[in-house]
């Protein structure tokens, strides 16, 4: 049984993502929404960490939030999946609990 963790803050400004990554357990998933989508991109200071996390957990990023911010979905780190709101709903339904890292 697993948890879907939602993170909505930029990793460059707030510690929500760090805190989330410190509390995920095997089998959990993470979805990056709102300002957290910046954590899903290659070429940043958090890329290596996210690429590594994506090898251990399912990590998704909300496409509409990337597009809203002018970020290229092609630049999303390998191993991180771009989903739409329907995909977000599916992830929530597949998990047992949804934990928002507010």
């Amino acid at each position: 049984m697993s948890t879907l963790h939602t993170v909505n803050k930029s990793p460059f400004e707030r510690s929500n993502l760090d805190s989330c990554l410190g509390h995920v357990v095997a089998g959990d998933s993470i979805i990056l929404i709102e300002d957290a989508v910046y954590a899903a991109l290659s070429g940043t200071s958090v890329t290596a960490r996210m690429a590594d996390a994506a090898k251990q957990f399912r990590i998704c990023v909300l496409g509409p939030d990337l597009q809203a911010r002018g970020m290229d979905t092609g630049a999303v780190i390998d191993g991180i999946t771009v989903v739409d709101y329907g995909g977000f709903v599916d992830l929530a339904a597949e998990s047992r609990v949804v934990n928002a890292w507010l």
Binding site: M1, S2, T3, G22, H23, V24, V25, D28, R96, V97, V98, N99, A100, W101, L102
Partner: peptide, 15 residues
Amino acid sequence: DLAKLMSEMDVVLTA
């Protein structure tokens, strides 16, 4: 240990 305990919950609300 807290991460493990969290994973056993049915409803998690963060404030």
